[in-house]
Design a protein around this nucleic acid. Structure first.
Lengths: 339, 339
DNA sequence: TTGAAAGCGCTAACAT
DNA sequence: ATGTTAGCGCTTTCAA
């Protein structure tokens, strides 16, 4: 049986309010009473009901986090970062897997709204931003990470400059002398997808390189998609000498496809992508990849939330754009052969 | 501003209870009233306050999940499994990272208790089981996964037979002809640690093989630990020909150490471990590893919870022991050289 | 210093 | 079919 304030009060023959004051460490309680209450609290194993507190306080001390895939190391790290900053304030993290599906994301957005979460961190995959207006109306801070929403109004976010990062990554392959460069892009409905594509195109254009239609495909940010696209693309007689891939999962899939086509990376095809960080350090080839500082992104998102919650003015928006790091591995071939 | 039942009711000039009935799809409401209410709900953008509902219902529709490390693919997959089964019932998942630290685990256990979670899934790293008694007293189902608690009383769990799995894994190396086998064990304070060690010992003993003290070390289930232990162990003149490692992270670290010692896997040292599943399929060497069906474990834990919550008798415990799969990779050397 | 009481938003038993 | 009301556990204002 759960002990509540009333039971403790009855047990001691005093009022609930006095017990509440002790529980919350307020003054206006005599030392003797306090001692007695503290003892009773202990012996009855009292645990404050946070739900009741939340109802009273009109906030739940819970941070919602929605990501496309918790098993993707990038998102797992982001979550870890958010959690590590918010746990200090006794916030709990409610994690949701949207599976990259806008409909499921929306379901979760509604659910979290009802659950009265205090704030939200989200890597959105949806093109419909209407529900974020509701969050705003309800005074719930939302911090966007990774993917940004197609919103006209201002909003908080922590991300990288995807166009620049993608441009830099593409320039890197071009600098290695590649002329025939293929690309697997993410969904352009997602900002990371479209911006990375944009950066890629910009770099290609600037170098006077052509993007051949048969060497360009778009698809979901998943391993299977990367595999499928690469398989078709590289079964053709003539192959491009380099492949740009918009995220980690697609790249892993693409690599398998390349191998199945008898192509070596980087000897036959140079490969670069985003966020292919390998904690284990055992992946071969080590990927040349543009890296978002995942845990840092999570931590900063958590900090933004803390600040917003302590401020009265929710209308001040923080836009943090972190530097992405170009991690040179073996997949691009620049370590081995200088063309 | 948030709309509540009262505001909707006032807006329509009817009572809260009628509005509540419509919201909950109950009968005893005339079609006309229902239609009017539905329209108002929509136009006022009403979202039921789940906190209030939870207080009333004395349960929060939230499942707590505590794991040592969310970025470990094994736990990430477990979480995914739990989430996928529980989301169907509109439960949300509150995720906590204990970081393998018993103190932090306990903090979270207390926090979740106060948050009135409906049920808990946990991979415990603590030796103190007293708080689980509180959960029991409060009628909150707890399903243990991976690591089991040192409890005298019955409890629900989904796991594998670690002794057997470890025995089988060890037998596999022995069958390859190795005589000098080293081991890196997890903390024996954790059941996975002690049971895997037990299985290892049993297999060694049965084959009349000696476990040399200098070839045996214990440590935390982390990459750095595996690295540190292996580094010392293999710097010695004479090296064992095989290494048994109790989990994935330790194994990744150990592999790096071996390489730094100029030892090749599997040629110089055969390596086997637990849960080194590589979604990307790019890890080299592909690990020979005993695999817990992570996502399945999560799903089953979710199902146990569903059953417990629909049953009146919480005292019926489900103990699910799944089959671990021996995944043969390259790290043990059996594919290449038959000794 | 302590207590009584209102109220957070909701549901449900009971009354009409 | 609809409304009134109590109460979930808590905090806090106000009164004593």
């Amino acid at each position: 049986m759960r002990t509540n304030l009333k039971r403790v009060a009855e047990h001691l023959g005093i009022s609930v309010s006095t017990v509440s004051r002790v529980v919350n460490g307020k003054d206006r309680v005599s030392p003797e009473t306090r001692a007695a209450v503290l003892a009773a609290l202990e012996s009855l194993n009292y645990q404050p009901n946070e739900i009741a507190r939340s109802l009273k306080a009109q906030t739940s001390k819970a941070i919602g986090i929605i990501v496309p895939d918790i098993t993707n190391t990038f998102f797992a790290s982001v979550i870890k970062g958010v959690e590590s900053t918010t746990r200090k304030n006794n916030y709990s993290a409610v994690i949701c897997n949207s599976d990259g599906d806008a409909k499921r994301e929306e379901e979760y957005l509604k659910l979290l709204l009802k659950k009265q979460i205090t704030a939200l961190v989200i890597a959105t995959v949806s093109e419909d931003v209407s529900i974020f207006k509701t969050y705003k109306d309800f005074g719930i801070p939302v911090v966007f990470i990774d993917n940004l929403p197609k919103m006209k109004t201002k909003f908080d976010f922590v991300t990288i400059d995807n166009v620049e990062a993608s441009y830099r990554l593409t320039k890197h392959i071009i600098s290695l002398g590649h002329k025939s460069i293929a690309a697997i892009s993410g969904p352009v409905s997602e900002s990371t997808g479209s911006e990375r594509l944009q950066g890629f195109k910009k770099a290609m254009q600037e170098s006077g390189l052509e993007i051949k239609p048969e060497y360009f495909r778009q698809g979901s940010f998943q391993l299977e998609t990367g595999y499928g696209i690469a398989k078709k693309m590289f079964q053709q007689q003539e192959s491009p000498t380099a492949l740009f891939v918009a995220n980690n999962m697609q790249a892993y899939g693409a690599l398998h496809a390349l191998r199945e086509c008898g192509l070596r990376v980087p000897e036959d095809v140079a490969l670069v992508c985003f966020d292919a960080v390998d904690k284990t350090g055992l992946m071969v080839p080590e990927m040349t990849t543009m890296v978002q500082p995942a845990e840092k992104i999570g931590e900063l998102a958590g900090e933004i939330i803390s600040r917003k919650l302590s401020k009265t003015d929710l209308q001040i928006y923080e836009n943090i754009i972190l530097e992405a790091e170009l991690k040179i591995g073996d997949s691009c071939g620049c370590k081995t052969n200088q063309r």
